[in-house]
Write a protein that binds this DNA or RNA. Structure first.
Lengths: 361, 361
DNA sequence: TTTTTTTTTGTGCACGAGCACATAAAAAAG
DNA sequence: CTTTTTTATGTGCTCGTGCACAAAAAAAAA
C-alpha cells in the first residue's frame, strides 16, 4: 500500500538532469546520445523503475494496425462460427488501440479457395496474421511466402509442428485423443469395442485429426487393452441416409461396438443416423459445444463432449497479436488450451460463458 | 473492409457547426446547452456514430482508482493463492488505466479478523470492492455498511443469494454437487456407498458448502438411487493422525464405501490418511487444482478434480470492476464460471494455462 | 437605452509519450 | 582561430478527451 507515483519520462529527465528528448532517445535506442550521459540515464531508469504508459504511448503514436485472419467460412461449418465470437470480443477490447481486423474466409474442403484467399490476404499488406491452416501441404507454401514479410504470425486450431517458429494457440490434438481414451475407459468398463469415426474428407492432409487417432490408440497401448478399436472415415456425412447405410454395414460386421468417438464437431450427424437405426445405448464422445451437440448432450444422446474452446482460440489469438504489435515484443509462443470434459451437468455453465460478454478492457 | 475513420468529438463539432466544448457538454449531460443546439448535436452524434476513445479519455481524466479486496489469506489455505494470480494478472493489464489494488486479508476460520480487516478496508475509502465472504452472518453486516458507499461491489467464490443486488463471479456450488453426483454415477456403476466429507469447520455458516451437499443429494434423488450417501465433517483435518483415526472409525461402521467426495480443495489431506489406512481402490472426487491435488491426480490417488477456476474468479472479478469504473456503467451481474472435470489426462493443460502469462492488454 | 445578470458557447491547457526540428556543443577541417 | 561539419541535447507540437475559464450572446433589471 505504498503511495509511490508512477514514474514518467519527465521524472527520469529531471532526476538525471537532462531533457525529455534525451531520455526518449535512450529508451528507444535511437542513438545520438553521449555514452556517459546514456550510462547515467540507464542508471536512473534502473533506480526509479520506469515502465512506459501504454495509454499515452498509443495515443501519441496514433498508429493503425491491421490484423488479417484466414479461417474457414462459418457458413459451411458451424464450428467456425465460434472463433468469430472470440475474435469479435478481442476486437472490441482493442479497437481503441488502433486495431483493425480484416477477415478472409476460405471454403472448408476447397483447397483452391484457400490459396485464393491467402493471396488476397497477402495483398492486403497486414501487420499481423491469424490463421488456421486446414490443409497441411498448402499451408506450408503459404508459410513460406509470409516468412519474408517478417510480421507476427499465429495459427489456431491446427498445429503444424514442422514449423516450430510459427506459434500456435489451440488444442493439443494428440492429448485430446488420449483423453477420449480415458473417458471410454471409465464409461465402458472393459466391455465392447470402440469405433473411431472421421466425418469428413481427406484426413490424410489434416494432421490434427490423425493426432487424435494416435492419442486414442496410445492410451490403450499402455495397458492391457480390453477393447478393439475400429477406424472408419465417411465423407458424405451430411447425407443422413447414406450415413445411416454406412453405419448399418459397420454394425453388421462388428456386433460388439459399445462406444463411438467422433473426431470432430460433427457428432450430431452421427446421432441422427443412430436414431434411425435404433441404437440408444452406445457411449458417444464427440467434440465442441455446437448448439446441436449441446442439445443432444442434455437429452442424453451424446454422453461426453470434449471442448477445445474455439472461442478462446480466436480471442487469445487476436489478443496475443495485439500484444505483440503494441509492445513490439515477440512474445508469441505455443499455448495448448485446456480440454474440457463436458457432460449434461456442466454444459450450461460453458454455454453461458460463451454467450456472456466478457470484460471488454 | 470499409475505410471509415473513427469519429472524434472534433468531427461532431465540425458537422454540427459548434465548438468541441458544446459537444462535450452534450455528451456528458453537463447541461448549459440551448435545447435546439442539443437536439442538433444529438442528431449528429446519432448520424456519425460516436463512441468515445477510452484511451484518450483515460489519459485526460488522469484519475486514480483504488480497488480494495477482502479475501482469506493465502498463508493459511493454499487455495487462496490462486485468486491472487488472477488478480495480479488483471492488475498488470489495467495499471495504465490508473487502477490500484489494495489487498486486505483475513484469517480463514477467524471471524474477528474478518471484521477487523473489513473495517480497515472501509477506512481506506476504496472506489470498488472485491470480496469473498466466507462467513454468512458477518458478511451480511458488512454488506449493509458498504451499501451506503454506493460503489461497485462484487463477490467471488461464495455466493450469498440473499442479497441479489450483489453481483457474483464464481462457481455454482449446487451444480458442482450435481456434477460430482454424475461423476460418481459414471465411475462407480451402481456399486457401493458415497461418503461426503467436509474437511473444515462451521459448515453451517458457509452456504456454498451446503449447496454442494444438496446438489449431490439431489442428483441421486431423480433416479432410483443405488447408493447410500453418508455425510461427515472433520475440523482438525491438518492433523493426519487424528484424521486417520476418524476415517478408520467410519470405515469400521460402514464397510461398503466406494467413493469419497471432498467438498473443498483439501482432498490431499484425505489421501494422506487413506494411504496410512491402506485404502487404494476408492473413487476420490475433490476440488481445485492445487499443486498437491494435481500430483495425486497424476499418480492415480485422486480420480477426479472439479476445477472452480479460482484464478479466473480473481481475474474476472477485478477486470469487471475496472470495467465498471472506467466506463461508469453498472454492468455488474452474476456469472457462474464453468466447472471443469479434471483427470490425469488433461490436468497438465489446465496447469500450463494457469502458469502461462496471458495476454496483458 | 444602458447596465447587470444569466445563459450559452468557445478556447486553451493538461494528461504522457513520440517524433520532427531547432539549437547548442563539440570535433574536424580550413 | 575561424568556419564548417558532426554530434549531442532541448523544445514544441501532436494524438483525443476532460475540464476550467474566458468570451460572447441573450435575457432581465435598471
Amino acid at each position: 500500500m505504498s503511495k509511490k507515483k508512477r514514474i514518467r519520462i519527465k521524472d527520469i529527465a529531471a532526476d538525471a538532469q537532462v531533457s525529455r528528448g534525451t531520455v526518449d532517445r535512450v529508451l528507444h535506442n535511437r542513438g545520438r546520445v553521449a555514452p556517459d550521459v546514456k550510462a547515467k540515464i540507464d542508471k536512473t531508469i534502473e533506480k526509479l523503475g520506469y515502465s512506459p504508459n501504454i495509454i499515452a504511448s498509443t495515443l501519441a503514436k496514433n498508429k493503425e494496425y491491421h490484423i488479417a485472419t484466414l479461417l474457414p467460412s462459418p457458413d459451411m461449418d458451424n464450428y467456425w462460427a465460434l472463433p468469430q465470437i472470440g475474435i469479435e470480443r478481442a476486437l472490441k477490447a482493442s479497437k481503441d488501440f488502433g486495431i483493425h481486423v480484416d477477415q478472409f474466409f476460405y471454403i472448408m474442403e476447397n483447397v483452391n479457395s484457400f490459396k485464393e484467399q491467402a493471396d488476397l490476404l497477402i495483398q492486403s499488406n497486414p501487420d499481423a496474421i491469424l490463421l488456421s491452416a486446414e490443409f497441411y501441404r498448402e499451408s506450408l507454401s503459404f508459410y513460406k511466402k509470409v516468412a519474408n514479410l517478417n510480421i507476427p504470425l499465429l495459427s489456431i486450431n491446427t498445429h503444424i509442428p514442422t514449423l516450430e517458429k510459427v506459434s500456435y494457440i489451440g488444442q493439443h490434438s494428440y492429448q485430446s485423443g488420449k483423453l477420449a481414451g480415458r473417458i471410454f475407459d471409465i464409461a465402458l468398463r472393459n466391455k465392447g469395442d470402440i469405433l473411431m469415426l472421421h466425418l469428413g474428407s481427406s484426413v490424410d492432409n489434416a494432421p490434427h485429426i490423425m493426432d487424435k487417432e494416435r492419442g486414442l490408440s496410445d492410451y490403450f497401448q499402455t495397458k492391457t487393452n480390453p477393447y478393439n478399436i475400429l477406424k472408419e472415415e465417411f465423407e458424405d456425412y451430411a447425407n443422413i441416409d447414406r450415413l445411416t447405410t454406412f453405419l448399418y454395414n459397420i454394425f453388421e460386421s462388428t456386433k460388439n461396438i459399445a462406444g463411438i468417438f467422433v473426431t470432430n464437431s460433427r457428432s450430431y450427424y452421427l446421432v441422427q443416423a443412430l436414431e434411425l437405426l435404433g441404437y440408444h445405448d452406445l457411449c458417444i464422445v464427440g467434440f465442441d459445444l455446437l448448439e446441436e451437440n449441446c442439445q443432444l448432450l442434455k437429452n442424453g444422446k451424446i454422453d461426453f463432449l470434449i471442448n477445445q474452446d474455439p472461442i478462446k482460440q480466436g480471442n487469445l489469438g487476436i489478443l496475443n497479436l495485439v500484444d505483440s504489435l503494441l509492445y513490439q515484443r515477440s512474445n508469441l509462443k505455443t499455448l495448448y488450451l485446456p480440454l474440457d470434459i463436458v457432460v449434461a451437468e456442466n454444459v450450461d455453465l460453458y454455454m453461458q460463458n460463451e454467450i456472456e460478454t466478457f470484460v471488454t478492457l
